[in-house]
Design a protein around this nucleic acid. Sequence first.
DNA 1: CACGAGACCTGTTCGC
DNA 2: TGCGAACAGGTCTCGT
Length: 275
Amino acid sequence: MPELPEVETIVRGLRPVLVGRMILSAGLLWSRSLVGLSPGIFKKRIRGQRIESLSRRAKFINLRLSEDNLLIHLRMSGDLQIREGGYEPQKHDRLILSLSPPSTLVFNDPRKFGRVWLTSQPDKVLGNLGPEPLDPSFTPRVFYERLQAHSRQLKPLLLDQTFLAGMGNIYTDEALHLARLNPMAQADLVTSKKAKDLWHAVQSVLEDGIRNHGASIDWVYRGGEFQNHFRVYGRAGEPCTVCGTKIERVVICQRSTYFCPRCQPFEGGEQGTAR
DNA sequence: CACGAGACCTGTTCGC
DNA sequence: TGCGAACAGGTCTCGT
């Protein structure tokens, strides 16, 4: 489900409610959701820890506890919610944390792709991630130099979390359309001017996404409004909002990819080259 | 290093 | 209406 803006929305919602609470006990309903620890050790170790802070890195949710970090990745269908008072486990609940004051933090994940880690060394999980796109240190110059270093198509490169952290299928397509770049263009052939356009586009779609509380495209994630602002995603056959040409859908790296053939022509990456 | 395909999963939507 | 196919905000691993 969630990309950077959806995860950021979830973190912002939970932070003021969760910080300061104590974890009384843990219930693991699908043991494969847990990485690197046995369920027994996990339950024993997390009990009694206090939630000190909540943050996001890429698409990971990071709960800093008294002794450890609880890292959660929602993958395709995960969700994280708090319920005050009593709680009866629901279908697809994978991890349930009982908190004080009386409340429950629920990790629900129909497709079981989501993962949680309990570790005192979060960098072992987060260490290979690329730059955070909204961080001030991620400048157009840095982006251009990173693009130069890869002879790959833009779409799979932007989805690569070691190249740039947090982009997913929706925001990648939206950013490429906004920057008028073809998803199949070669990264190292993108000019510095077009790289700057793409940098601005990435900032813009992520900030728009966050401002709109993420995108809700089906039953999995609710509450977002960004789906009402899609330029290309999921709009195959519909007119481009810029030029009216029909949006096309192709598959790149087994991912649906939407683009406007007129605004985002394939030029082999060499932008502006005639013939 | 780049790439494609398969795996991991369940639920919803589409097409006949 | 029914039933199988296609598809879904992600990532890992393996082969070439």
